[in-house]
């Protein structure tokens, strides 16, 4: 008989697999993003089951709150009505399926043959004693200081890069048509 945690896990797992599977299959990209959003919430639930409260919170705030909203905005650029009428998959999707199935079999074999190594120092009790956030903070700002800083730089680069890429420069030709117009010697119009 299933215990309560097991029951919850099975629920979360089935929900995640269903939502993710739907997300890559539905026609409408907006639905797709929204399904992933729901999946992320369930993922946060799994994190909670693993005693990672802080990560669960980050998952909801960063992924669900920030990243997926960004996706939504981008999806809105596309003409949804036209998009829905087009084919969802590429022509040779069979190759993708074969690779996926092979990889799934391999990964499942790996998952079932997985053996845990020796346990570390951060037992559940130890984490619970000083709270999860604090424990993470101690670990991150002691052993992982440099990677943390680098991650910050990466984010900065992403911010700058995203802005530079997406900005519409009025003085420079950014589209092919504008570039062609420039080559013909025409003045750039509005």
């Amino acid at each position: 008989m299933l215990t309560l945690p097991q029951f919850f896990f099975i629920y979360f797992a089935l929900a995640i697999i269903f939502l993710a599977g739907m997300a890559v299959n539905v026609r409408n990209p907006v639905h797709s993003v929204l399904l992933v959003l729901a999946m992320f919430f369930h993922m946060a639930g799994v994190y909670l089951m693993l005693n990672a409260e802080f990560l669960a919170a980050v998952q909801v705030i960063v992924y669900a709150g920030a990243v997926l909203v960004l996706y939504l905005f981008v999806v809105f650029l596309v003409n949804i009505k036209e998009e829905i009428r087009l084919k969802r998959f590429i022509g040779s999707y069979t190759t993708g399926r074969v690779i996926t199935i092979g990889m799934l079999a391999t990964l499942l074999a790996a998952a079932w043959s997985f053996k845990l190594g020796p346990a570390g120092t951060w037992s559940i009790e130890a984490v619970r004693e000083i709270t999860h956030t604090r424990a993470l903070g101690i670990e991150m700002f002691s052993h992982y200081m440099l990677p943390f800083e680098i991650a910050g730089v990466i984010l900065l680069v992403a911010v700058v890069g995203g802005m530079a890429l997406a900005k519409k420069d009025r003085n420079r030709a950014t589209t092919t048509e504008e570039r062609r117009a420039l080559m013909r010697g025409e003045e750039l119009g509005e």
Binding site: G21, V24, R88, I90, G96, L104
Partner: peptide, 15 residues
């Protein structure tokens, strides 16, 4: 593993 493969599937097949 299943989730990863769903991701691979979508990655390889969606246009």
């Amino acid at each position: 593993a299943v989730l990863f493969c769903i991701g691979v599937y979508g990655f390889l097949t969606r246009r």
